[in-house]
Simulated assay, not measured.
Amino acid sequence: MKDTSHFNNELSGKIALVTGGTRGTGKAIAERLLRAGATVIVTARNEPEENKEELYFIAADLSRPEGTQKVLNEVFRNYGRLDILINNLGGSETPGGGFAVLTDADWESTIHTNLLAPVRLDRGFLPRMLEQGSGVIIHIASIQARLPLYDSTLPYAAAKAGLVNYSKSLSNEVAPKGVRVLTVSPGWIMTGSSIRMMERIAESSGTTVEEAKQSVMDGLGGIPMGRPAQPAEVAELVGFLVSPGAGYLTGTEYVIDGGTIPTVG
């Protein structure tokens, strides 16, 4: 059993929501907050990979305004407030081929999922946080905001860049009123979907999974740490940032990429 004594129930009494919290990095974040004593709500379009009774699940499509409203209504009806909001939902389903193959629908769906979904949730939960004079909002962005891969994720990179800028601006507005806003920008994370992607690449190219993984790292310009991040490593950073020990941190972007971005700033 993993030793959790160092968490000391530091989030006891806190209500937290993790979007996209049923698998991958979102699932790891939800479980990390749960171990720290928080009451944790997760939301996603699909049911969790495994049902955890301790996690309250809300089925919702946050790329649509009515999905956001459903989550807001259910959280306030059942809990009355929210202390921690982790805007983790994100992803790219656009085709490869650069700008010329992308339609308006590709751009709009990506921006709705990666930028407007967190904007809507913030707008819904912030007034209550401001009333209580406390709260933490974490936006999960991506190093693609600085290191875009134009061939296959151009709208995703643009949306995440917008999220980083919005997050900084929002923090300046609400920090004087007791609410902290921070951004976490991961590099490549070895989630279940990443593993499946490596298997598909290996099968189509006639290589091994290890060789497929190396080809992806080479495409990023290399990862000095020599491997992708594990979801739990990103979750550990988020767990610290929402804790009382990070009480003076706001308005900052934290990059967790194993050294992938080759420049300063």
Results as ranks from 00 to 15, higher is better:
88 N>V: 01
221 G>Y: 11
229 A>P: 09
204 S>Q: 15
105 A>S: 15
55 L>E: 04
35 R>G: 04
163 L>V: 03
78 N>R: 15
255 V>T: 14
100 A>I: 11
236 E>D: 15
95 P>S: 10
211 E>F: 09
97 G>H: 10
37 G>Q: 02
229 A>H: 05
245 G>M: 08
255 V>A: 04
205 S>C: 07
224 P>K: 06
140 I>Q: 06
193 S>C: 00
27 K>Q: 14
129 M>V: 05
51 N>K: 14
84 I>E: 06
242 V>F: 02
82 L>W: 08
52 K>R: 13
169 S>L: 11
214 Q>S: 12
118 P>T: 07
197 M>C: 00
230 Q>S: 08
214 Q>G: 02
77 R>G: 09
61 D>L: 01
158 A>G: 07
20 G>I: 01
8 N>K: 15
169 S>N: 14
84 I>C: 09
208 T>Q: 10
232 A>Q: 14
186 P>M: 02
161 A>G: 15
13 G>H: 05
68 T>Y: 02
36 A>T: 00
1 M>H: 12
154 L>E: 00
14 K>A: 03
218 D>K: 14
164 V>E: 13
81 R>M: 09
46 N>F: 03
47 E>Y: 07
23 R>M: 12
157 A>G: 13
159 A>N: 06
107 W>N: 06
152 S>P: 01
29 I>R: 02
261 I>D: 07
146 R>S: 12
202 A>V: 02
74 E>D: 15
229 A>C: 13
200 R>M: 14
6 H>A: 10
75 V>R: 01
180 R>E: 08
160 K>L: 05
136 V>F: 05
123 R>N: 14
158 A>C: 11
44 A>D: 13
48 P>N: 06
98 G>Y: 08
162 G>K: 04
111 I>F: 15
159 A>F: 00
28 A>W: 03
101 V>G: 08
97 G>M: 09
47 E>P: 10
181 V>A: 04
127 P>W: 03
142 S>D: 06
251 G>T: 00
114 N>L: 05
37 G>E: 00
229 A>R: 03
237 L>Q: 03
58 I>G: 08
216 V>Y: 13
125 F>Q: 06
81 R>E: 12
150 Y>I: 11
151 D>A: 09
200 R>A: 13
77 R>T: 14
122 D>W: 05
261 I>E: 10
264 V>E: 13
180 R>A: 05
218 D>Y: 08
139 H>C: 07
51 N>T: 12
159 A>R: 01
253 E>I: 01
133 G>C: 08
8 N>R: 14
103 T>K: 12
15 I>K: 03
47 E>K: 15
262 P>Y: 03
50 E>P: 04
81 R>A: 09
136 V>W: 02
249 L>M: 15
71 V>Y: 06
257 D>H: 05
187 G>T: 03
41 I>T: 01
19 T>M: 02
207 T>V: 14
60 A>E: 02
89 L>Q: 12
83 D>Y: 08
210 E>C: 04
43 T>L: 05
27 K>N: 13
44 A>E: 00
238 V>W: 00
73 N>D: 14
166 Y>N: 04
242 V>W: 01
2 K>V: 13
156 Y>C: 02
81 R>P: 05
8 N>I: 06
119 V>R: 04
125 F>P: 11
